[in-house]
Design a protein around this nucleic acid. Structure first.
Lengths: 355, 355
DNA sequence: CGGGAGGATGGTAGCGATACCACGACGGGG
DNA sequence: CCCCGTCGTGGTATCGCTACCATCCTCCCG
């Protein structure tokens, strides 16, 4: 004689289980499971009924049970190793949020850019049970890492690569268009003598940004040739580039740096030369990383919805991993998300310009 | 007739289960479970045997199964909402790592500092199934949030509160001692005219740092009174403070800002006045946040092992939640971790000093 | 010296979900 | 017209672990 109480109504803790849904929809638990997991072997009518029951009851699958039964750990790896590190924070927030939503575990792994370190990181990820990996920049550009991961049969999503290889899943903004918009913004303010600091040549996004900038300049036609310096996405490299740009005669009235760290460096160098930003010099960046809003005056820059991108990357990964079982091999998926030009205090009309 | 294969030897995927350990140790699975979960009802001899078996076999419990069976979702909340935001990234890394180690889920929740927003955030956390919460600064100072959380019967760990209430669990560095060390460092370099920028008065850590600084000054005795300005941990407030400090006659040769954002602002202002750091002015910060190593010259500062602290916070939380069941109420636990003075390029001997 | 308290251990029944098979209902070719 | 392949669905057996009891044994006290 067992105590019969407590099993009369669903789970002990009152949460909705798959059985509740099944009963409500008048089907078997199995069918509910199939619907929830997107199996093809369910009639449309049944599927609708079940989905409605799910919605009505507010059912959400118990992750622990699912993992236990399916023995698929469903851990997603997140390889990081970030030179321009302010990125990571927001990225993690977005990724973690999506992971929680899907009930998968996120496993972090730090990774230097050397081949040996890459291999080690990937191995740790594999032995940690990860079945997919998110690659924020600049790791997404590393062919070594990608090759290693693919050899381990992992799904990969690259985030914010400028021109990702077609066979990889990818989430990014349109760097080219964003750079164009920013450049047009500078021209619209009345700037004519422009300076540009390129990003790290290893990253394809750098070239996209540069292409965007120069395409607008060329279209405008009548402008003096912009001064261009090579940077490497670091504050230090921005400082060097700024020194050269500002030493020129005549100096540019506006400088477009390929990321925020370098833009911050331009501001620092400008101040050292007793140039007020934005009164004497307009400075704009790219990324809207933390430093952009930390410093004063705040940096006009291109906002990347980093958290959202990270979230979508995890979404993509989960879909690929789950779908990869039922359907064919993962179809190549590229996702473009919207950027936004954020105008803060670092950009204004050039000094002599008419209002 | 079922296929008998695959259950002959432990799990399908070859992983070690509790039964393997039990068989190896010659006890029942229940006993193994007790040992692993630290129940008191196990004899020492048995415990040793089991532990040895665990080690020998490399057993690690299946988290999914554990969560399923015990119906304890074991989600930990992480409330954030960070003005000095560069903190968050490293914090998340540490917290997530520890969470993965313990097999608990981390649930993020953003939270403004208003009472209404706090209440909402806590409610979301509760309904999300969190049983404990980590509070990074500055949230750990909010009595509203703490009260709300305690009302929801959650375990709380405050991180990096300067002087935490005794009844809260807490992980922090010794702000007082760290500030003392930094101040002594400045004196050892030969600085005598010092400036200090206080942190936000709402945060107890601010006062600890200030007390540390001034205690060393007082002990030294012979120095001119330091110039002190009130800051609020933001770049902007650091700029204002720096302006006042550097306008003084004679100006200080070294400025100690209560965090890195403000120190970065001091450097910016110094450069604007054509003062070279560290040649003309020494600037030091506190926290070793990202900006400290992003800018150039790099900031000499106090390194807080943020990731480690976040990890310990999660450890503490897990222990409290798990232990809270078998043992008495959680004993108050304060954990002090080691800080480190990181000397970068922003501090040097004062200009006129003998070498 | 017996009975009861309580420590140490084992047995059994799930937790909530999926894997795998079985089964009925179609539909088209031989 | 029957057989067989495929679709849609339900049943059953776990997945690895812990809750909850039942049990045995020891030791203390009256």
């Amino acid at each position: 004689m067992n105590k019969p109480a407590r099993k009369t109504r669903s789970g002990a803790r009152g949460s909705i289980t798959i059985k509740d849904v099944a009963r409500y929809a008048g089907v078997s638990p199995m069918t509910v499971s199939r619907v929830v997991n997107g199996s093809q072997y369910v009639s449309d009518a049944t599927r609708q009924t079940v989905l409605q029951a799910v919605r009505r009851l507010g059912y959400s699958p118990n992750i622990a049970a699912r993992n236990l039964a399916s023995a698929r750990g469903e851990r997603m790896g997140l390889l990081y190793g970030n030179p321009s590190a302010s990125y990571l924070s927001e990225f993690l927030v977005g990724a973690l949020d999506a992971a929680t939503r899907h009930g998968v575990q996120l496993v972090l792994e730090k990774c230097e850019l050397t081949p040996a370190a890459s291999r080690r990181a990937v191995r740790r990820l594999v032995s940690g049970g990860a079945v997919g990996a998110v690659l924020p920049p600049p790791l997404c550009e590393s062919t070594v890492i990608c090759a290693e991961l693919q050899a381990a049969r992992m799904q990969i999503v690259a985030v914010a690569a400028g021109r990702p290889p077609a066979e990889l899943m990818c989430v990014r903004i349109d760097d080219f268009a964003a750079a164009r918009e920013m450049t047009r913004y500078l021209l619209a303010l009345g700037h004519e003598r422009l300076g540009f600091i390129k990003g790290h040549p290893n990253q394809t996004a750098s070239e996209e940004r540069w292409r965007g900038f120069s395409s607008v300049i060329q279209e405008a036609g009548h402008l003096p040739a912009p001064r261009v310096e090579q940077g490497f996405f670091t504050f230090r490299s921005g400082l060097d580039a700024a020194r050269k740009l500002l030493a020129a005669e005549p100096a540019p009235t506006a400088i477009f740096a390929s990321n925020d760290d370098m833009a911050a460096a331009v501001m620092a160098e400008a101040h050292r030369r007793a140039l007020e930003v934005p009164h004497d010099l307009t400075v704009v960046g790219f990324d809207d990383s933390l430093i952009a809003s930390t410093i004063w005056p705040g940096l006009t820059t291109i906002h990347q919805p980093i958290a959202q991108m990270a979230g979508e990357a995890v979404d993509l990964l989960v879909t690929a991993v789950r779908g990869g079982k039922g359907h064919g091999p993962a179809e190549s998926a590229h996702r473009l998300v919207a950027y936004e030009l954020v105008a803060r205090e670092s950009a204004a009309r050039p000094k002599g310009a008419a209002v």
